[in-house]
Design a protein around this nucleic acid. Structure first.
Lengths: 232, 232
DNA sequence: TAGTCACTCGCACACTGTACGACAAGACTC
DNA sequence: GAGTCTTGTCGTACAGTGTGCGAGTGACTA
């Protein structure tokens, strides 16, 4: 007998201070949320971790793979209720809202989604649980895939449009309200009264509320359309 | 009197061979369609035009601005029928299909859309004509903006998902069918029968057709949802 | 003939992802 | 204790990126 387990356990635990993939993912996520996709470079990330730039490549094959990890990490934040508890309709409603707010917390998501559709474990369970909700509505087979796809497409498209607008304002150094009035002014020069009115609606009143209302209105349309499909 | 208009006109036309913005936009669009967003660099574009790299910057302030021009250029390809001719429902259907096929022709579109929402002239008229369709359905004011936004969000999300999947296969050097069977195999290891069946549906049978069916199914849901909104 | 305008372009800067190979520290075997 | 293996770090280097700057050039005007 050379050692008690206790000291031995201490020895087995990382003796040399070392980078971990979890650590990298966590820090990368923070940078991404704070500075956007353009603000994430391997060198800056390494600096933030206090390591050499190329050390990261031992833990992660490539930057794109790191982003895949980040996407799946974030999918894990989405709540999908059990259909037994919520019923298919309010369950899907909650799911859509949870997906939306996850995207709002991580505004870089839509941009990368259209380059690298994630197939990680969290994306998988999201699919499973989503299909369970749709199945509770009585839709099965191919149509279940389609119906779930419709909800996800809408949420991604809608939330994506919102983050894009906010990003545009940020880039121009304006608040969204300032951007809205700027757009309104630019429509004044055109003779297009339809767009003028639309722009005026956006420029006057609470924009955050309008984004939210737009989302719930569209979600209602989608859910109502699915409900109509069931009855027939 | 110094010159006849005829010779004068010839003189006024570009005497020195010179780059034009239209030319740049056209060539950039070709490269983008052929090689994707990552394949477009200012140097390569200039080389393709037979000019020095920084010459482009006289005609276009920055690469991002060039992409804005390209986005609006492409919006111009979308057909939006007059509501008087098609009625709101089939008019919106045609519009959505036209938007989808435009995105499929220019697969880089979704990716850039979520960074730079376009506000160019073509985007404007697209908005006007879209709102006209919705107005024909009897929806006005805020709700018209919302309803149109729902359709566009769905189309963008759905078509975006499709191009992302195709892009993923391309990157892996596989056909979409090969990708689908690869995904099916990867689900075999998991005990998740729901996703297994879903993956099997995708792996067996015509994938192009399935993408199309998925789109029309979702579009039907959206239109039905809007129709339900009108009746009440 | 001189001057102005419209445009081109080479150079340079700061930055990117990442391949490569040298290095080191702890763990394992004899 | 000595030697080898595994795990991990990191400096250097390469090929690329967007673009600011300033010099240069051809055509037109006064």
């Amino acid at each position: 007998m050379t050692e008690s387990i206790w000291t031995r356990k201490l020895k087995t635990s990382p003796a040399r201070e070392t980078l971990t993939r979890e650590q990298i993912v966590r820090t990368a996520l923070e940078t991404l949320d704070a500075e956007g996709l353009a603000g994430l470079s391997m060198r800056k990330l390494a600096a933030k971790l206090g390591s050499g730039a190329t050390s990261l490549y031992w833990h992660v094959p490539t930057k794109d793979d790191l982003i895949d990890l980040l996407i799946d990490e974030v999918w894990g934040e989405i709540d999908i209720p059990e259909p037994e508890l919520a019923g298919w309709r309010s369950g899907t409603l909650l799911y859509a809202h949870s997906m939306r707010s996850t995207i709002m917390r991580h505004p870089w998501l839509p941009e990368v989604m259209y380059t690298r559709p994630s197939m990680g474990p969290n994306a998988m369970t999201m699919g499973t649980r989503g299909l369970a909700l749709i199945a509770a509505a009585g839709i099965t087979g191919r149509n279940a895939d389609f119906a779930l796809g419709t909800v996800m497409s809408f949420v991604l498209g809608s939330a994506g449009g919102e983050v894009a607008t906010r990003e545009m304002a940020r880039r121009a150094g304006q608040s969204i309200d300032q951007l809205a009035t700027a757009v309104l002014e630019s429509t004044q020069h055109l003779g297009d009264t339809t767009m003028q009115e639309s722009a005026r609606r956006r420029a006057t009143g609470d924009i955050d509320g309008m984004f939210y209302d737009s989302f719930t209105y569209g979600l209602e349309i989608v859910l109502e359309g699915i409900a109509a499909r069931i009855k027939n």
